[in-house]
Design a protein around this nucleic acid. Structure first.
Lengths: 339, 339
DNA sequence: CCTGTCTGGGATATCGTTATCCTACATACG
DNA sequence: CGTATGTAGGATAACGATATCCCAGACAGG
């Protein structure tokens, strides 16, 4: 540890002095913008190595205008879907030589959104990716300054409000899951929804569309949070009803909570009730019974979002929208209804 | 959308002109470093609002030397523990007005580590938090430049190599979990370990210490990855053995995979075999049987790490180490052995 | 031999902000 | 009344890099 009180990080001028060349020459060696004689370049490299020089990103991005920081806005970070999407963004960004900052938008309130944006954009930001799985994300998009390249990543099925987007088509996926349950012979399918992003939740919409198309009256939506406890509580209620034979859950947590509550009350899944989740978290395949769910490739979503942002930042405006339809993974938690 | 081709973000000079004051005065209004006449301050605020001015962070941090970016290095991001720790860091940082960048260190190889560090430190970084749950993190710490404030966050029980650290004492937790199983009457406790961070894994060490103290021969460690599949494979093997009555797993994923494999082979948990996990992910409380596990407060860990880093950056060197011992949460997956 | 083109590299301007210095004026004090 | 003290705000320098300009020398062609 050579950490001293008066330590000052070496700057370009120090390198130039040590290598007995001018400051711009060092810069040219670093950026390869012009030919530099091998002899000088060698001296420069040696000096850089010896002094442990590291370019100052602030100065660099200020003068050159190039920014290498991407801001991600999200309503949460630790949830499975968010975390995986973030992972995809980080991986793609790192390959492209860019860094990622993550800023949580506490709520959809204007104050929280504004604070989050001010904080994030206090850094030299090339562009933003907004994770629109909830209201916080949607409001964040609306309040971002004009002129900043923005990509939306989320669960919609079409691009939101003129902003290019990377999407997972949850609507179609929910529709396919519902149709699958109907094909198994269920008279209807019930739905426990997570907190919706405004009026529209792709998952809920797809479920509703499938029922409507099949000319089946749409049962009341059961509203819940995204956590296991919510699912458990609905399980307690559903256990007392005999009109429910199939449930499409807003996510895997809800499904698992539901199944536990049902099991505690002696209701067998899938014999008595079929359950479908959403997300395909690694754990749910190990459940007893293993969970039929929708496999969402969040990591791919993140990578697509970053790639589009990169194009946008480079001035390639052709980036419009990219939609992937996730697949239903059939496991043990679904079966034809009894009798 | 007023996004035009030739759009240029307003700078301080634009605001100054609009408010008919000098550039430094605008800066003073923004930073409150000196009294400014209310009249002028009002004009400045109005101009800022009208132009949608936003300070350029690069220029700011360059001139003032103040940095508001914290770099987190981690071997992964989407795993439960990493994601929650990150969440804790982000929350604390946001409250303190700082942003967080996350950089994944792909492996412990010098090349990967160096690349990750170069990328992250290309930004104006105030300090770094290294997540030391694996070898990648540990190597990252060693290669960080001198002079950069660094805090380690991880599962050790004492501060690693002179660097201040926020820790979760996994060793003591694993010891307590093992002692609990022994108290239930198990003759010995087996252990499935995740990929260890070098020689020492607190979880494995604590397990070994508990057995040694009880004068029980230490069984061979079963090595696994952190995922459910690893646990499942060990379950297949353990099912054929009758000397295993209690298993301490490196994390919850392994425990769940293990339990599923056992269940598939007609082995009942906890009657035939007791299983203990590590982490207390939200889902595992809903398992059948619900999982006895060690509750690790990762979010708190992240907050502690950030707070310590903040002190370090502010020149307060008194910060040394902060250790929390996580609690065992007893649920349904553990019981006395048969007979 | 003169001129034009190319190449390597130094001198200097510049990015947007904050730190430092300085001036003008008002007020207070001996 | 002269000087010390304080306040408000402008002028200017500086942070660390890159962009631009420019000059010296090498070399080719007429």
């Amino acid at each position: 540890m050579t950490t001293q009180k008066g330590y000052r990080a070496p700057v370009l001028a120090d390198v130039a002095r040590a290598a007995r060349v001018s400051v711009p020459t060092v810069s040219r060696v670093l950026n390869g913008t012009k030919y530099v004689a091998p002899e000088l370049a060698g001296r420069v490299h040696e000096a850089i190595e010896r002094l442990g020089y590291r370019p100052n990103g602030a100065a660099r991005s200020m003068r050159s205008g190039r920014r290498t920081l991407v801001s991600v806005f999200a309503g949460a970070t630790a949830n499975y879907g968010y975390a995986r999407t973030l992972q995809g963004i980080e991986t793609a960004a790192r390959k492209a030589g860019m860094s990622v900052t993550i800023t949580v938008v506490e709520s959809g309130e204007d104050d929280d959104v504004k604070r989050a944006i001010d904080l994030a954009l206090a850094q030299p930001t090339a562009g933003a990716i907004v994770l629109e799985f909830d209201r916080a994300g949607i409001n964040a998009r609306h309040m971002l300054p004009d002129g900043l390249p923005v990509i939306v990543a989320g669960g919609g099925s079409r691009r939101p409000g003129g902003v290019p987007a990377a999407l997972i088509d949850e609507r179609t996926a929910a529709r396919k899951a519902t149709e699958y349950l109907l094909r198994l012979g269920h008279r209807t399918v019930h739905h426990i929804a997570g907190p919706t992003a405004g009026k529209h939740s792709g998952r809920t919409d797809g479920w509703r569309a499938a029922l409507t198309d099949a000319k089946i009256p749409v049962p009341a939506v059961m509203n819940a949070e995204w956590d296991v406890t919510s699912g458990f509580r609905w399980g307690e209620r559903i256990a007392g009803r005999d009109d429910v034979t199939a449930v499409l859950c807003g996510n895997d947590e809800i499904a698992i909570g539901l199944m536990r509550a049902l099991a505690d009350r002696g209701i067998h899944v899938p014999r008595d009730i079929s359950v479908v989740g959403f997300d395909d978290q690694p754990l749910v395949a190990m459940w007893q019974p293993s969970l039929t769910t929708v496999d969402q490739d969040f990591e791919d979503l993140g990578e697509r979002a970053f790639t589009m942002l990169e194009q946008l930042v480079d001035g390639d405006m052709t980036a419009t929208s990219s939609v992937v339809v996730p697949q239903l993974v059939v496991r043990e938690s679904t079966a034809p209804p009894r009798g």
